Amino acid sequence: MLLFDVLFYVFIAIVAIQIIYYGFIFGKFASVKQKKTSAKNQPVSVIICAKNEAENLKTNLPSILSQAYLSFEVVLINDNSSDDTLQVMQAFSKDHENIKIVNVKPIEAFWGNKKYALTLGIKAAKYNTLLFTDADCRPTSKHWISKMSERFDSQKTLVLGYGPYQKIKGSLLNLLIRFETFMTAVQYFSYALLGQTYMAVGRNLAYRKELFFEANGFMDHMKVLSGDDDLFVNQVASKKNTAICIAKQSFTESVPKHTFSEWFLQKRRHVSTASHYKLKHKVLLALFYCSQFLFWGLSIILLIVLHQWQIVVGLISLRFIVQYTTLYSAAAKLKEKDLILFVPFLELFLITFQFFIFIKNLSSKPQHWK
């Protein structure tokens, strides 16, 4: 019985930690009301780095080129593609004067490194305000550039946006991918609002060109093949220079992976990059994951043995009430309310999924960004 008494008190502590995360940390984003800002019409360079993305460019470039914005250019970076990516870019450029093409040839020192290609694109950009997305993404409205650029001011030189994945009816994998993306966004938006910005997604990210050069670009982590978005943000973000944009018209939507193996490889790359975050951010993220893992594990054990089961049920209920309250509000902001009904199942699967990724990454590291 002593063992179960110890587990019971540990469980109480874990529930308290979970409530702090969901009720206070993530609650910061759930309760935020973003102030309206006026359009600034500052010129913007939209930057897209593409490697073997010919078909995606044909599909998504029109929605970028048709943005309702006064002054913008589109910098298309062909990162040594082996398909018709360059030819597609050139075809679009014949009809659009605001397209600039950067054709990157591989060099031995930076073979397969997206950051090298992006650096060349950033240097070629005409304007100081840079807005990034991927070739497999499309803005959900004609006001994407406008809404993202509105968040800049004299102090805010870094803007974090949201990049959801398309909804596919009847797909379990789609639910899992969208839930993981949603939870990641809740975390990075919440920490940004608390002045502890640790990451962003390159599908929808903006910053000043001067910020890039002041940080010496990607040089501090150039040898890490991924992380052109999150590692750079982890390096340069501060409480004063970071803003978030959660207007529905500012979202970019991507096509999700079609198989578990493709998604598994993608998430392995993301998790391996997170090991390079600042220590305080790694501790905060690890504590949240461990508290989730222990919450489920100890809940199951204590309910099976019926140890103080009335209190255990009460604590489980309290935790889920706080979690659902926060996530429902956050999902309403990010237009993901259909996920909330499945939260317990999706959360349990995601915890297990992340555990296997961690184990796999201990033995090997994913290579190349494509």
Rank of each mutant, 00 (worst) to 15 (best):
V6K: 13
V10D: 06
V102T: 00
W144R: 02
I177V: 15
H368F: 15
R138D: 03
Y191H: 12
L194S: 06
F212P: 01
G23K: 03
Q187K: 13
L339I: 03
Y188T: 01
L284H: 12
A330E: 03
R138W: 07
P344K: 06
A16M: 08
L2D: 14
A135Y: 01
I357L: 10
L279Y: 13
N52D: 15
T119I: 02
A16K: 12
A206Q: 02
Y188G: 00
S272C: 12
S238Q: 08
V88H: 05
H221M: 06
I122K: 02
V343A: 10
L7E: 07
C245E: 15
A16E: 09
A50Y: 00
E73G: 07
N241D: 04
I145C: 03
K169V: 12
V201W: 09
I145L: 07
F110E: 09
T184V: 11
L130S: 01
F110T: 09
R319Q: 14
F232C: 02
Q310P: 01
S250M: 05
I300T: 12
V255H: 12
N174G: 07
N234D: 11
V102A: 04
S364K: 09
A331Q: 05
G170W: 00
I244R: 00
S66E: 15
S31C: 12
V6I: 13
E108Y: 08
S275H: 14
T37Q: 14
F179N: 11
T129A: 08
